[in-house]
């Protein structure tokens, strides 16, 4: 369980003004939960993720993973970035094994475990390739496998599919659900696609900008329906899915309009 308690972040902007990026956000990510944060750019969702990962200290409030306070980056929280941060001088399988190398695992053993993870994301035949020989979707799969290698308690995913074309994106969503279902990790996932948020999350938080705060929370079960049936189209075509999508779109627009009116 990852617990965020009244987290606030203030930045100093370039022009000397203070930016209130995150305003007393509280959030709980229970074990096995898939929590999606949805919001327009500038709503603080990446700030929240960076704080969870330990890249960014909080101005006030606290974040704790299984009771232990987060004070910096660590292998107990796996991060998948929007732009994959793979190392071009290492092969795909060596990239996946990187965290195990840092942990001091012997080479033969860590490569064997990395190979298993490549199988999990469907890339078992690409271990010897260089990252730059892969397509964008395949690279993100490598990124997911790499983040899983150290067996973290939680996966933090910062718009990982944002740069992919829509067909690849749907494949990746289904693959991620499969990985989540099989590994039982908690996932915190950022997106600005309403459909993606509804399809993936067991919990959804909608955030609004300036200052970044959570304006709505939903419990969802579309992802469990998909994991049970494997039929993504049926899930997305269900009337309840469409109705909720329209509600949330209206909500996001409303917060946008309020923000514009306030400026």
């Amino acid at each position: 369980m990852l617990r965020v308690d009244k987290a606030s972040v203030f930045f100093a902007a370039r022009d000397g003004r203070t930016v209130h990026a995150l305003d007393r956000v509280s959030l709980e990510i229970p074990d096995r939960a898939f929590v999606v944060a949805l919001g327009a750019s500038g709503c603080g969702k990446s700030t929240l993720l960076n704080a969870m990962a330990g890249f960014l200290p909080l101005s006030s409030g606290s974040i704790a993973l299984d009771g232990a306070e987060v004070t910096g980056p660590g292998a107990d929280r796996g991060v998948v970035f929007q732009k994959d941060a793979l190392l071009p001088w290492k092969t795909v399988v060596e990239n996946v094994a990187l965290g195990l190398k840092f942990a001091g695992v012997r080479r033969a053993e860590r490569l064997a475990r990395a190979q298993e993870l490549l199988r999990l994301v469907g890339l078992q035949d690409f271990g010897a390739a260089a990252p730059y020989e892969l397509s964008g979707g395949m690279r993100q799969r490598v990124g997911i496998a790499r983040a899983l290698a150290t067996d973290p308690a939680i996966l933090l995913m910062d718009e990982p599919f944002g740069a992919l074309d829509s067909l690849t994106r749907e494949q990746m969503q289904e693959l991620l659900v499969d990985v989540w279902d099989r590994t039982g990790k908690q996932i915190f996932f950022i997106t600005h696609s309403i459909e993606e948020a509804l399809f993936l999350g067991t919990h959804l938080v909608v955030m609004s900008p300036r200052p970044g705060r959570i304006v709505a929370r939903y419990d969802l079960d579309f992802v469990r329906a998909f994991a049970a049936t494997g039929d993504a189209r049926a899930v997305k075509n269900a009337p309840a899915f469409g109705a909720l999508r329209d509600d949330i779109r209206a909500l996001v627009h409303e917060t946008q309009i309020l923000r514009t009116a306030a400026q």
Binding site: G54, G74, A75, F81, K83, L87, G99, K101, R146, T150
Partner: peptide
């Protein structure tokens, strides 16, 4: 060196020395 690469290594548990050897130098 991209900050993202450094962050990725840190979140994989790299020590300062490992960060230098595996990320910064290459």
């Amino acid at each position: 060196v991209s900050q993202e690469r450094v962050n990725a290594a840190l979140s994989l548990g790299a020590t300062r020395f490992q960060l230098m050897r595996e990320i910064v130098l290459p």
